[in-house]
Structures are given as C-alpha cells and as structure tokens.
Simulated scan of single mutants.
Amino acid sequence: MCLAAIGSYVYIYLVALLGLLICLAVATLTSLGLFIWFAMTPHNPETERKRLAILEGFALLTGFSLGPILDSVIAVDPNIIVTAFVGTSVIFICFTLSALCDTHRSHLFLHGTLMSGCSILFLVSLTNVFFGSTLLFEANTYLGPLVMCGFVLFDTQLIIEKAENGDKDYIWHCLTLFLDFISIFRRLLIILSKKEKDKKTDWKNKKY
C-alpha cells in the first residue's frame, strides 16, 4: 500500500505536471506484464525474493495507474481521497473479521455468484461504452463495491483454507487482498467524487 501511494504521488506531482500521459499507458502495460510474470513464477524459497520484488513493482505501478482518477478527485475535493481510504479500510477490516469469525467457511460458496457478478459488471460497462447511459453507469458504480466486498469475504476464507491445507504462498495471498483493497478504493473514489460534484452543481443552481 505504501508503494502504491508512492506511485500515485509520482504521477500527480511529476507526470501530470509534465503532461507525459504516455507514461500511464506504459505503466499499465508493464504492471500487466509483472502480474503475468508473477503468476508464472513458482513459489519456492529460491524465488521468494524475486516474487517479492515483482510484487513491489506491481504495487508501485498500480498506484501510478491510479494517478488520473486521483488527479480528477483532487480537482473536486482533495479530502475525498482521505475519506475513501478510511472508508475502504473500515470496509476491508469489517469484512475480513467477518470472514475470520466464520469457522464454517460458508463464504467459499460465493465464488460462482461473485464471478457471475463480475461478468455482469463487465458486460454493463462494455454496453455503456456504446449507449452512454447514466443509469447503467450508476448501476455499475454502486454494484461494483458490493461485489468486491464479497471477494474480500471469499478471498480471506480461501487463503485460510489454503493455509490449513499447506499452501503457505503468502506473497500471492498478499497480492489477492491488495487487489481487493484497490478495487474498493477506486470505486469509492468515483462514488464520493460524483456525490461531491452533484452537491456543488445543486448549490450553484440554487445560487443562480
């Protein structure tokens, strides 16, 4: 998370000022390459340092890729970033504790439902590219965090289940939870930013 924050800082205070938006595309493609490299690297004591380095690079570039949305949120209200981070942390902790307290591993059965939810959200986003519907956009925006909260429950219990069965790949488990956190954080940024924009628009309309 610290490396992701550094990556975002680099984008906002360096790249955004220099106008080098091509760096964003390069960073996104590089992070994808690192993810594939990480997934293909087997877990063993000899590759542990390498996999940790790949994870650190991926986290840094993920934060860098968050730069544009953070930049747009700062233009609306910088306090939204703090609010979104605190909100994401609270959500993440609450759902993680819920998963840890459930000794029956009942949330493991959510996998099919969550994958279906992701597919629906993807199709809605793809459809909205052509139709530009506000309703579809809001449906995707508000349903997305619910699906990702479900993934926090599922991934936490899956990690416990794997660990109990001898899978001690903590680096991959760390990556899984990191992606869950970032996904919730990104969507909260969009929701809070939209609400703040609507509030300012309503205030201007009342003023005039």
Rank of each mutant, 00 (worst) to 15 (best):
V124A: 09
N140E: 15
G144T: 09
L143F: 11
I160W: 02
M148N: 11
L158C: 02
G132S: 05
V82R: 00
F131S: 09
R51S: 06
F154H: 14
L146F: 14
Y170K: 03
F92V: 01
F85G: 07
I191H: 04
L123V: 09
P145C: 14
I93S: 03
A59C: 10
T176H: 09
R105C: 03
S116D: 07
F137G: 06
S98K: 06
L146K: 08
I184T: 03
F154L: 14
I74R: 11
F154I: 02
F185G: 04
R49N: 11
V73K: 00
F181D: 03
F131R: 10
S106E: 10
L189E: 03
G87Q: 02
R105N: 12
H173K: 01
A53Q: 14
S116E: 08
T47N: 15
D169C: 09
L123C: 10
P68I: 03
V90C: 06
E56S: 05
Y170G: 00
G144E: 00
V152H: 05
D71V: 00
L110N: 09
A59M: 11
T141R: 04
E56I: 00
T96L: 04
L70F: 15
L177Y: 08
L114S: 04
I93M: 06
V76G: 04
D180I: 01
G132F: 05
T47A: 10
Y142S: 02
L70S: 00
I190V: 11
M115E: 13
L189P: 06
L143V: 12
I159W: 04
E46W: 12
F178M: 06
F178Y: 15
F95L: 13
I182T: 06
I91M: 13
L66R: 04
H104P: 00
S125L: 13
G63I: 02
H173C: 03
C94Y: 14
D180F: 08
V152I: 15
G166P: 03
L153I: 07
I160S: 04
F154N: 07
Q157R: 02
A75R: 15
T141A: 11
S119M: 13
E46N: 09
F85M: 00
G132V: 11
L100Q: 09
T62C: 08
S98I: 08
G57L: 01
T88W: 12
F58P: 00
L97C: 08
L114I: 07
C94V: 15
L52W: 10
R187A: 01
C101G: 12
T127N: 02
T62S: 06
T156P: 03
T141S: 09
E138H: 13
P45Y: 10
P45V: 11
F151S: 01
E48A: 07
L177E: 10
M148A: 13
G166T: 06
E138I: 11
G67W: 05
L175S: 08
N79P: 01
D77A: 07
S183Q: 12
I191R: 07
H111K: 10
D180K: 12
P145M: 10
Q157N: 08
T156V: 15
D169V: 05
